[in-house]
Simulated assay, not measured.
Amino acid sequence: MSQKVRVHAALFLVALIYGANYSIAKEVMPAYVQPFGLIVIRVVSAVLVFGAISAFVVKEKIQSRQDWGRLALCGLLGITLNQLSFFAGLNLTSPINASLIQTVSPVVVVLLSAYLLRERLQAYRMVGILLAGLGAMLLISGKAGNTQGHVLGDLLILFNAVCFGAFLVLVKPLMQRYNPITVVSRIFLIGAVGVLPFGWQQVLEPAYATFPASIWAAIAFVVICMTILAYLLNVWAMKYASPALVGVYIYLQPVFAIFIAVGLGKDVFTWQKALYAAMIFGGVYLVSKPKKAVA
């Protein structure tokens, strides 16, 4: 399997995990665990896992204060603000609204990449982003029109999308200098400091002994798949892919969200949805298309 195929496979799996999370996390919040409490469970678990791997397997140190400063900013944007705004927003709005608003992230990625990383904005890449975004919006527009999303929840998801887009761009230089485990372990440690004051009390409130097995399975999915596996795959892929490619895979999340609903008998697959999904995959292809060699 070539490196390019592995990168796309990793990003594809991340999109699938996030697409499923919109429905799975809603099963837990707020009936069993409040949103900030779920964040603390998620982030502290990741700190323990990534910290252990970093300390006993990778054993790599951060080399400069400048890198520590960038790590702190990545922890603030990629964990603290990203997680607090996402789960608080998802708790208030609908999974469909949330998945639609998330498509703002790739736009932020491309614009910040051009400004901070001096990446040139090729015309075909912009066309790919627009094509994928249009496909995603058309795919879920029928459902979104029938869903009453809380305005504050929608705004929080929008803020989350901006934070995550900025994180993808800012973490790129770190991924080129360090092992992914080194970067992720520090980012989660810094992010945990930010989320603990907001969610610690909510961790102590639930009666965990009364949780049914399905809720424990949902919490395990959020911790193991959405947190540990998804972040690892994302940051590994960023060593070999542009932030724009990583960001554009967010457009697959609403596709998977609706496909999962179809599998559960909550939606119907039509040829229009197949066409919109094809637009999204076409957009991903254009964004990932390599630059033409100069003769």
Rank of each mutant, 00 (worst) to 15 (best):
V223G: 02
V255A: 14
Q83H: 12
K239A: 12
L100K: 08
K266E: 15
A144H: 11
V183W: 01
F56L: 09
T80A: 13
R118N: 14
P197G: 07
Q83Y: 13
L232R: 03
G263R: 06
Y115S: 15
V171M: 06
L264P: 03
A136E: 12
L174Y: 05
S99T: 14
A261V: 04
L168V: 01
K61D: 07
Y240Q: 14
L245P: 02
K59D: 05
P30S: 09
F12H: 12
I17V: 08
C163Y: 01
A144D: 02
G37A: 07
A88S: 14
L158K: 07
V110P: 08
T147S: 15
V222N: 10
P254G: 08
L204A: 12
C225A: 14
G153V: 00
P95K: 03
K59A: 01
L116S: 07
V47I: 11
G149C: 04
V268D: 07
S105L: 05
L11N: 01
A46V: 07
F188H: 05
W271H: 15
T93A: 04
Y22K: 02
L174Q: 09
G199F: 06
Q253P: 12
G265I: 00
K172H: 10
V5N: 15
Q272W: 11
T227P: 04
R42Y: 07
I215L: 07
Q63T: 15
A257K: 06
Y115L: 15
Q253G: 11
I258T: 11
L233P: 09
L189P: 03
F259Q: 09
T210H: 13
A220Q: 04
H8E: 11
L73R: 03
E60L: 00
N91T: 01
L130W: 10
G199I: 01
I17A: 03
